[in-house]
C-alpha cells in the first residue's frame, strides 16, 4: 500500500479540523479529494508534510510502510512525499535553479545516488521548464519571486516533474488558473503517471478532473470523508454542488 491513513484526527492550534479521516491509496492510483471550503482539504496535505502548527491528535499515517509522523519534514520528502502548495512561497535571493538543484540532489543523496553536476541538472531543468511552458529565465529568478498565481502553480508542477515523487498531493493546483494553464498543469501531472506513482488531487471544483482523470473521488466534509466513489461522483458534485452536505448528513456520517 502506498498510503494508509487510519482514523486521523488533527488540529490547527486549538481547533480540531480532521475528525477521523480514513484513506487508502495503492501504487499508481489517482484519488481526488473534493469538498467545500473549510472541510479540511488543505489541512490533510499540511499534516502529511509536517508543517508547524498542524498537529496529529490521534490516528496514523503510513507511507510505504513508514510512519510519516515519526519522520522529519525533509525525510518525508526524501521518502517520496511531495506537496504541491496551494500558495507557493516566495524566497527572494534564492534562485529557482539553486533551490531545485539542491532539492533534487538531496533526494538523490538520500537514495544513495551521486549528486548531479550543474550541467546535468541544467539540462533536466530546461526540459521541465519547457514542459510547464515557463520561459527559461524563470530558472534564474528568485523562487516564486514576483511570479503570477498561475506561474507559481506551474513552478510547483516543474518541481513535481524534477523530483519524481512516489506520492504527490496537489493542493488546489487548479485554483486561479485559466483553461490553458490548467491544461499545462494537468499535462504535467499526467506525464508523471506511470502506474507506480500515486496522486492525491485536492480540489474544490470538478474542472481539473476533466483533465486528470481520478480512479477514486472522495468527498470531505467537516474533517471526515462522507462519500467515496468513482469519477462519476465528481460530475455529481458539479451538478449539485455541496449543498446536500447539510448538517443532517454531517451528523449522520460523523465518526464513520
Amino acid at each position: 500500500m502506498m498510503l494508509t491513513i487510519k482514523d486521523l484526527h488533527a488540529r490547527v492550534e486549538d481547533k480540531v479540523i480532521l475528525k477521523g479521516l480514513n484513506l487508502e491509496v495503492k501504487p499508481g492510483e489517482v484519488h481526488a479529494i473534493m469538498g467545500p471550503n473549510g472541510a479540511g482539504k488543505s489541512t490533510l496535505g499540511y499534516v502529511m508534510s509536517g508543517r508547524d502548527g498542524y498537529e496529529l491528535v490521534s490516528g496514523s499515517i503510513e507511507m510505504n510502510g513508514d510512519d510519516l509522523m515519526e519522520l522529519e519534514i525533509e525525510e518525508r520528502a526524501q521518502k517520496g512525499l511531495f506537496l504541491a502548495f496551494q500558495y507557493p512561497v516566495e524566497i527572494p535571493g534564492v534562485s529557482n535553479m539553486e533551490f531545485m538543484k539542491e532539492s533534487v540532489n538531496a533526494m538523490r543523496k538520500a537514495r544513495g545516488e551521486e549528486a548531479l553536476t550543474a550541467a546535468e541538472f541544467l539540462k533536466m531543468a530546461k526540459e521541465a521548464c519547457k514542459q510547464v511552458n515557463l520561459p527559461l529565465d524563470f530558472l534564474k529568478r528568485g523562487v516564486n519571486e514576483g511570479f503570477s498565481g498561475g506561474e507559481k502553480k506551474r513552478n510547483e508542477i516543474m518541481q513535481l516533474i524534477l523530483l519524481k515523487p512516489a506520492l504527490a498531493i496537489l493542493d488546489e493546483s487548479d485554483s486561479g488558473l485559466d483553461i490553458d494553464a490548467l491544461k499545462v498543469v494537468a499535462d504535467g501531472v499526467n506525464s508523471q503517471r506511470d502506474g507506480k506513482r500515486s496522486f492525491i488531487v485536492v480540489t474544490h471544483y470538478q474542472r481539473l478532473l476533466d483533465f486528470i482523470e481520478p480512479d477514486y473521488v472522495h468527498i470531505l466534509s467537516d474533517g471526515v470523508i462522507v462519500k467515496s466513489g468513482g469519477p462519476e461522483l465528481a460530475k455529481e458534485v458539479e451538478s449539485t454542488g455541496y449543498a446536500w452536505l447539510g448538517k443532517p448528513v454531517e451528523s449522520e456520517e460523523a465518526g464513520a
Binding site: 509536517g50 508547524d52 525533509e74 512561497v89 524566497i91 535571493g93 534564492v94 533551490f99 538531496a106
Partner: peptide
C-alpha cells in the same frame, strides 16, 4: 528567518542546515 520559506525548502527534502545557509546567502547575495 522566514518560517514559511524554511518549511517550503524542508518539504522539498533540503536539510535544515542547508536550507538555512541558502536563506542566509539569499539575504545578502544581491
Amino acid at each position: 528567518i522566514d518560517d514559511k520559506a524554511l518549511y517550503y525548502m524542508l518539504s522539498r527534502g533540503i536539510k535544515r542546515e542547508q536550507a538555512l545557509v541558502m536563506l542566509n546567502f539569499g539575504f545578502i547575495q544581491e
